[in-house]
Structure formats: C-alpha cells, structure tokens
Amino acid sequence: MNSVILRTAARVLLPLLVIFSIILLLRGHNVPGGGFVGGLLVASAVVLYAMAEGPRKARAIMRIDLQVLIGIGLLIGLAAGLIGVAAGEPFMAGLWFEFPAPGLGEIKVGTPLLFDIGVYVTVLAVCLHMILSLAEDA
C-alpha cells in the first residue's frame, strides 16, 4: 500500500504502541493486560508497519529471525517454571523477590512476570510469523 499518510502514521505509532504494550505487560498481573495482549499489540503494530512499508521491511525491523524468537519466548516460559524447581519448589511454582528501588518503594519481581514475558515474546513472534508469511506469499 503506497500511502504517505499511512507511512507517516505507522512510523509514529510503532514506538508508541510498543511502549503501550510494555505497560500492558507489566500491569497484567493484577489488572487487565498481560503478556498475551501485549504481544498481540506489538504484533499488530508491526503489521501496521508492514502494511505501510511491505512485509520485507517489517521483518527487517524485527532484527531477529521470528522462528528463533518463538523458541526464545517458549524457553523463557520454561525457565520461569524451572526456577521454582531449582529453588526446591514444585515445577511452575511462583517465586517472588523484593527489591528496594529508589523513589519507587519496593518492587516485587517474580517468576510469573518472567512467564508473562515468555508469553509476550511467543505471541508476538507467532502472530507476526504467520501474518508476514501469508503477506509475503500474496
């Protein structure tokens, strides 16, 4: 699609949507949001970019092979499960660590967040891979 408006808008929207997706990912533990939605949002942002600039350029801005990214996402999820095992808890048990952060109070980071990041990466890579493959085929 050769549209100046779409191309300009896509270039501005892409970083905004990525930031928004990260906010969604981080708030997802207690309120609506999470890895799945966040991943879908990034995927749709990149698809928007692909509509403006073509699927090849969209693959190029991902920098990393999408198949490999699927594997990495799933491995992060698996690692989140195995951390519990390493700490002597059952597989997939949620562990939480607290860090004091200057100006923000205590920050709690846990394996569920890591799992969510895994979901985020997997969903984004799977959706993009499917959509871009179909788009390149056409």
Binding site: F36, V126, M130, S133, L134, D137
Partner: peptide, 16 residues
C-alpha cells in the same frame, strides 16, 4: 480459543 486460533491459522496456510 487460543488453541483454535493457532490451528485455524495453520489450516488457512495449509488450504492455501
């Protein structure tokens, strides 16, 4: 739904 999403998108590629 998530599973059927994956399977249906595979099926679309297969049919194509």
């Amino acid at each position: 739904i998530v599973i059927s999403f994956a399977i249906i998108s595979y099926t679309i590629v297969l049919v194509r």
